[in-house]
Computed example of a mutant assay.
Amino acid sequence: MNALNLKAPVDTLAMEFTREFDAPREALFRAHADPELVKQWLGPRGLEMNVTEWEFKNHGGYRYVHSDEQGEYAFNGTFHTVRENEFILQTFEFEGMPDMVNIEYMWFEDLGGGRSRLRGRSICPNTEARDGLLSSGMEGGMTEGYEKLDELLTRL
């Protein structure tokens, strides 16, 4: 099993992660690009996802809403830079905490043999926002989401 490696270096505003996948880089990238695929894996189990906006291109935007019996959780951002099968630079905002916008970098690496690695860095606006994300169960949600992504990638 491929484990999530999430780090939040002390005295920085950054969170960094790596995760390997038993799938080609192109399939991994496609699962981040296609909203019909994204809603099958993004977020923890038990949440339903509705994509209300998805313009996956340079200077495009997105908005989606996760929901469960507790309520709705909306997120939005801008895709600043998209380089197919290589790189995504985007913003990320939880609408429940307006103005706390993260800048997120994602690199898609080909490991050969039909395997790939996703490397990411998220820069938060302040340490309170970073610590809030870390204490909200983000790591567990990312782990579950990437397990769902593993399942999706075996079907693609």
Rank of each mutant, 00 (worst) to 15 (best):
M138P: 07
N58I: 10
E53V: 15
F17W: 15
E36F: 01
E16A: 02
T143S: 14
T78E: 14
M97S: 13
R83V: 15
P35D: 02
D22P: 00
L47D: 03
K148L: 09
G60C: 14
G71D: 07
H80G: 08
R130K: 15
T18N: 08
A23G: 00
N5Q: 12
D34G: 12
M49N: 10
L156P: 01
A33V: 08
T12F: 06
N102F: 15
L153S: 03
E139R: 14
G61P: 02
A23M: 05
E86D: 13
M1D: 03
R19Y: 05
N76G: 14
E55H: 12
A27G: 00
E84D: 07
D22Q: 04
G132V: 00
R115I: 04
A27M: 03
A74T: 13
T12L: 07
N102L: 15
L153G: 01
L153W: 00
M15D: 01
S122D: 03
N76Q: 15
E84F: 06
G113I: 00
T143K: 13
L6C: 02
H80Q: 14
E86C: 06
A8K: 03
P35Y: 04
K39H: 02
V65Y: 07
F17Q: 10
E26L: 00
G140Q: 15
G145T: 11
I103W: 09
N102I: 11
V101I: 15
